[in-house]
Design a protein around this nucleic acid. Structure first.
Lengths: 124, 124
DNA sequence: TTTCGATATGTTTTTTCATGCATATCCAAT
DNA sequence: ATTGGATATGCATGAAAAAACATATCGAAA
């Protein structure tokens, strides 16, 4: 007979999130913080990065605080004052962390997408 | 020198979620529904499955409704009444869907875990 | 025909978080 | 020394999701 699922199959979107937590299941690092960390480093500013991603500064600041608390040392080098108001960049450890997460994602992204394609095939 | 991150590295837990949505970003099927569907079929009961997973019946019922609405045909064969109160099992389509998701997960789980292990290695 | 326990669903309360608002601090450049 | 714009942080408000509560319905078996 016909393919039961195929009617709306092409309208389905895939999503996934990867994150890490501490013993108390408090989120440490995930897709969200990874992205903002990268952008902060690129822009040299927390505020600019928040604006671009549509995050509130307040929230981002709190989230980043958590991760630094967990590791016990700063991932961001933040400076206040100056005519520019201030600036923020990643510390070497921050860069290392981001790069490791980059590699992690690179190693799984295509596999997940392929798995999804196959999933849809299976339903046909 | 020392390895900056290694102090608490072993306490980090990995998490990830995979799900699918329709055009309006309404969740259709994901890890949660997948799990509960499997368990319902295994137990022959929505209630029993909810109890085991700690989900409220109300919520699960609503969630499953959504996915059936999306596909337009039932994934569950539900019966009310009887001395046992009722029972629920997967329809053939429901089983097919669950199996496809099983395969999907099987194809990505180990890759993600390996990627995570490597991520931790990278931080050392 | 009564009963029992699961399915079915509306309504209310709680929880959770993000957002919004307010305010303080900091300092390089002018 | 003044200033402007970003960082720092408390607090109150709001919105969305989950949980909790409350009933109604169903029907095989006793």
């Amino acid at each position: 007979m016909e393919k039961k699922f195929s009617n709306r199959l092409s309208t389905i979107n895939l999503h996934y999130k990867i994150w890490m937590s501490d013993e108390d299941e408090q989120g440490i690092l995930g897709d969200g913080k990874w992205q903002i960390l990268k952008l902060i480093d690129e822009k040299g500013s927390m505020k600019a990065a928040c604006d671009e991603l549509g995050y509130t500064y307040r929230r981002t600041w709190g989230n980043l605080k958590k991760i630094e608390n967990f590791f016990g040392f700063p991932l961001l080098e933040k400076h206040r004052g100056g005519s520019e108001g201030g600036r923020t960049a990643l510390t070497p450890e921050g860069k290392k962390l981001v790069k490791a997460f980059d590699r992690f994602h690179a190693s799984v992204d295509s596999v997940i997408q392929k798995g999804f394609d196959k999933f849809l095939q299976d339903l046909k």
